[in-house]
């Protein structure tokens, strides 16, 4: 049996809102040691999502036997919208479940709401992702990266990222013209999450589809910072830290035709 209680429903709500536009169906793998893990790839096979909600993200977590919950995220999202952000949220499943029980408890009122979501058998490829060495890594405020991704998409369907040891440059060239944004590393002592940190083994220039970057920044509400790891001619990793766990996106780059 699985029983996981979140202190606030908002965490799972934000996670599902971050991924449901990229992948519609996915398997939630549940185990006592790893909590909940998900690996899912979008239909175009360009963006991969790797989610880990450790048991530490839950107020209470027990999973007697490893379970796979096949979920339609659009449906789960509809059910999660029934509860308030501050409610306790408990998810419950039997050992061979055909449905997931979702329970919201209002902390002030005596109100408990229960929903049952039908589960599905989902056949999905699992990809092997080794811990890669990266050429460079940038950590920056998540909202700032989101603004760049959204703004630059209005100029071009591609966004070029150029990292050197003393700057990161975002470059867009489109039909109406072009634009670039240059950020320099700095440390904000009072608000560390406002800092921009660049770690560099070697400079990297990569181009990504603006559409996919805009899917990724839907996770902005999850974390105050985002870490972007880039390697020449390889998929990029965008990581949003959870209180205990992470949401990672792997995005394949665009290459010269």
């Amino acid at each position: 049996m699985l029983e996981g209680k979140f202190e606030e429903a908002s965490l799972l709500k934000k996670v599902i809102e971050s991924i449901k536009d990229s992948v519609k169906l996915c398997n939630f793998n549940c185990s006592q040691s790893k909590g909940i893990t998900v690996q899912a790839i979008d239909d175009s096979r360009v963006l991969l999502i790797a989610l880990k909600i450790d048991s530490g993200s839950f107020q209470e977590f027990r999973c007697d036997r490893d379970l796979v919950l096949g979920l339609d995220l659009e449906s789960l999202s509809k059910i999660l919208k029934q509860g308030n952000n501050e409610d306790y949220l408990t998810i419950i499943a039997e050992d061979s479940p055909d449905s997931l029980l979702v329970v919201f408890e209002d902390k002030k009122k005596d109100r408990i709401s229960e929903f049952s979501l039908k589960l599905m058998d989902i056949d999905s490829d699992v990809l092997t992702i080794d811990d890669m060495e990266h050429d460079c890594s940038i950590t920056m405020p998540a909202y700032e990266f989101a603004k760049i991704a959204r703004d630059m998409k209005t100029l071009s369907e591609s966004l070029q990222i150029i990292i050197t040891k003393d700057s990161v440059k975002f470059n867009a060239e489109g039909q109406i013209g072009s634009g670039s944004i240059i950020l320099k590393p700095h440390t904000d002592m009072e608000k560390p999450d406002e800092s921009i940190k660049i770690e560099l083994n070697q400079p990297v220039v990569l181009t990504f589809g603006a559409k996919y970057l805009n899917d990724i920044v839907k996770a902005t509400a999850l974390s105050s910072t985002v870490t972007i790891k880039l390697t020449d001619k390889a998929p990029a990793l965008f990581e949003y830290r959870l209180p205990s766990g992470y949401l990672r996106y792997y995005l394949a780059p665009k290459f010269d035709d």
């Binding site: 096979r45 963006l47 991969l48 990809l127 092997t128 390889a234 665009k254 290459f255 035709d257």
Partner: peptide, 14 residues
Amino acid sequence: TKKQVSLMSFFGKK
């Protein structure tokens, strides 16, 4: 022009 590549060319199936 730049061409979008698939993740499958980088990651193998388990």
